[in-house]
């Protein structure tokens, strides 16, 4: 794999450099204010962008240190289905969070939260369904009651309608 030719820092450095170029392009598009001022809106961002670019280049030549937490690939992980590996679990978690956000205002806080906690806990491999069920219902319902009734914070009621 060609990506292995780069060290961890060099990969990070390429990301930083790409980001700072993108940032600079945006910074140069900031319009000028009608009245002349000693410092306009664009100066600070431009300085930041160039500084970031410089730092990214410096990072390219820095040696890797032990502080970067490298993936500890375990032997057994090879045999696991993709969704059981660390990366797979993260991907499923992200998708669940996106689903949670999209459904929150439509289905409502209580139902979405209960489903989210129960589903994700089950997915992470917790086998005691009764405990899981009680915890998710208590948390979903409890938070809703405390926040909406007690602290006056609005949460979407959704299809349950209370």
């Amino acid at each position: 794999m060609s990506i292995n030719k780069f060290t961890t820092n060099q990969i990070a450095s390429l990301i930083v450099i790409a980001f700072s170029i993108f940032y600079l392009i945006l910074a140069f598009q900031i319009p000028e204010y009608a009245l002349p001022r000693p410092v306009d809106s664009d100066l600070f961002p431009k300085v930041l962008g160039f500084f970031m670019l410089l730092l990214g280049i410096l990072l390219f030549f820095e040696k890797d240190d032990e502080t970067s937490e490298k993936e500890e690939v375990e032997e057994e992980e090879e045999k696991l289905p993709w969704y059981r590996t660390g990366g797979g679990e993260i991907a499923v978690t992200i998708l669940s969070v996106i689903a949670y956000i999209l459904l929150l205002e439509i289905v409502g806080f209580v139902l979405t939260t209960v489903l989210f906690i129960f589903g994700l806990t089950w997915f992470y491999g917790y086998k005691r369904f009764v405990v899981n069920g009680i915890v998710s219902v208590v948390i979903g319902f409890g938070f809703y009651m405390i926040l909406t009734r007690g602290l006056g914070v609005y949460l979407p009621p959704g299809i349950l309608g209370f």
Binding site: T93, V135, L155
Partner: peptide, 19 residues
């Protein structure tokens, strides 16, 4: 169990910001 804890932390983040 970690499996129970992590979803709770995520929900807490969501409530915190939505609130």
């Amino acid at each position: 169990p970690r499996a129970l804890l992590l979803p709770l932390i995520i929900v807490f983040c969501m409530i915190g910001v939505y609130g």
